[in-house]
C-alpha cells in the first residue's frame, strides 16, 4: 500500500495573534494533479511553506510521501521538488551551473551532478540556453530553468507555487506541457495558480479561504455544485440591482464589475429579468458554470481578480484566461 503523496490533518498555523490556517485536512493520492486555490491571504502560501518544510505547524500534522514534515524533514526535502513564485536561481550564473550546484546541494558527486544537469536541460529543451547567464534568458526559459532545478533529484512529488505567474499564454502553455509529461510519468503535482485554465488541469481542486478548506472536489463536480447555469450581468448600478434581486430571492454575487446569478434554467428567466430590472443592463451573458463562478459563489471573490496578472476590473476573456467549456 502506497502512502498518500500528501496527508494533512488538523493543521493549524498561528503567527502571533493571526491564525493563518485554522484546521486543514486533506489527502492527495500519488500521481494526482492537485490544485490549491484561494484568494491572497487565504493561507495558501502558509500551507505551501509547511509542506515545503520552510515553516513548522502550530498544531496538527503534515506528511509528504509518508514522511512527517517536522520530524523527518530531511527525508521530505530529499523527496520533493519545488518551484517558487519568485526566482530561486542565481541569475548571474548559467543554467548549467545552477543545476550543477543543485546537484551538489543534494549530495551528488560533481561528475554525476554535471551529467544530471545536462540530461534535464536536454529534456526541457534548454540545452542551447544552458551556457548563458540565467538573467539573459527569456521569461519562459527562466521558468523552465526553475522547473529543471526542481527536477534535479528526480522527485516523486512536485510543488508549484504560482509557477507561471506573469508569463504570457504561450510560455505558460509550454511550461504546462512539461508538467503534464511529468505527471503522466506518475509524479504527484501539487500546485497553486491564478490562471483558470491551469486549474482545469487538476484532477482535484481544494478551495481555501480564511485558513479553511471550503470545497474539495474535481473541477467537474465543483462546477456541478452550482446546480444549473450562470447569468452574468453588467449594469449601471450593481448595488441597486443586487438589492432589487435580493428582495426577489435571488442571491447575486458581485464579482468585480459584474453580478453573477445561478439558476436552474438561466436562458428561460433572463428575458423576464431584463424587462423588470430597475437599472440599465449593459451586458448580459448566460453560460455553463466555470470555476470562476464556483469561486465567486464560495468565497465572494473572483478567481483571478487578485492575481498580479489580472487586468483591473477583470475584463471577460482577458489575459487572466478564464477557461470556458
Amino acid at each position: 500500500m502506497f502512502a498518500p503523496a500528501v496527508a494533512v490533518a488538523g493543521l493549524v498555523k498561528r503567527y502571533g495573534e493571526v491564525e493563518a490556517l485554522r484546521g486543514i485536512d486533506l489527502t492527495v493520492q500519488p500521481g494526482e494533479r492537485f490544485a490549491l486555490l484561494g484568494p491572497n491571504g487565504a493561507g495558501k502560501t502558509t500551507l505551501f511553506s509547511i509542506l515545503a518544510t520552510l515553516r513548522t505547524p502550530t498544531a496538527g500534522t503534515a506528511r509528504v510521501l509518508g514522511r512527517d514534515v517536522v520530524t523527518e524533514r530531511d527525508a521530505v526535502r530529499r523527496a520533493m521538488g519545488i518551484v517558487f513564485q519568485e526566482p530561486a536561481i542565481e541569475q548571474r550564473l548559467s543554467g548549467r551551473d545552477n543545476l550543477l550546484l543543485m546537484g551538489l546541494l543534494y549530495g551528488l558527486p560533481s561528475a554525476a551532478a554535471r551529467k544530471r544537469a545536462d540530461e534535464i536541460l536536454g529534456s526541457l529543451g534548454l540545452a542551447e540556453a544552458a551556457g548563458r547567464p540565467a538573467k539573459n534568458l527569456s521569461g519562459g526559459q527562466r521558468r523552465k530553468l526553475e522547473l529543471a532545478r526542481a527536477l534535479v533529484t528526480d522527485p516523486q512529488i512536485l510543488f508549484l507555487d504560482e509557477a507561471t505567474l506573469g508569463l504570457d499564454v504561450d510560455a505558460r502553455r509550454g511550461f504546462w506541457t512539461h508538467v503534464r509529461t511529468l505527471a503522466a510519468a506518475g509524479r504527484t503535482v501539487f500546485f497553486t495558480t491564478h490562471y483558470m485554465e491551469e486549474a482545469e488541469v487538476a484532477d482535484r481542486i481544494a478551495l481555501i479561504d480564511a485558513g479553511r478548506i471550503v470545497a474539495l472536489d474535481t473541477p467537474r463536480a465543483l462546477k456541478a455544485r452550482l446546480g444549473g447555469g450562470v447569468i452574468r450581468l453588467q449594469t449601471d448600478d450593481d448595488a441597486l440591482a443586487r438589492t432589487w434581486l435580493a428582495e426577489r430571492g435571488w442571491a447575486a454575487e458581485a464579482g468585480g464589475t459584474e453580478l453573477m446569478l445561478v439558476h436552474a434554467d438561466p436562458a428561460a428567466v433572463l428575458p423576464e429579468l431584463l424587462r423588470h430590472l430597475p437599472v440599465k443592463v449593459r451586458r448580459a451573458e448566460v453560460h455553463e458554470p466555470s470555476l470562476d463562478d464556483v469561486f465567486l459563489k464560495l468565497t465572494g471573490r473572483g478567481f483571478a481578480s487578485e492575481g498580479a496578472a489580472a487586468p483591473a476590473g477583470g475584463g471577460r476573456g482577458g489575459p487572466n484566461g478564464r477557461g470556458r467549456p
Partner: peptide
C-alpha cells in the same frame, strides 16, 4: 534577498 537561497533552504543541506 535573491531566491537561490530559498532553493538551498529546501535542500537537505
Amino acid at each position: 534577498q535573491i531566491g537561490f537561497f530559498k532553493a538551498v533552504l529546501v535542500s537537505p543541506v
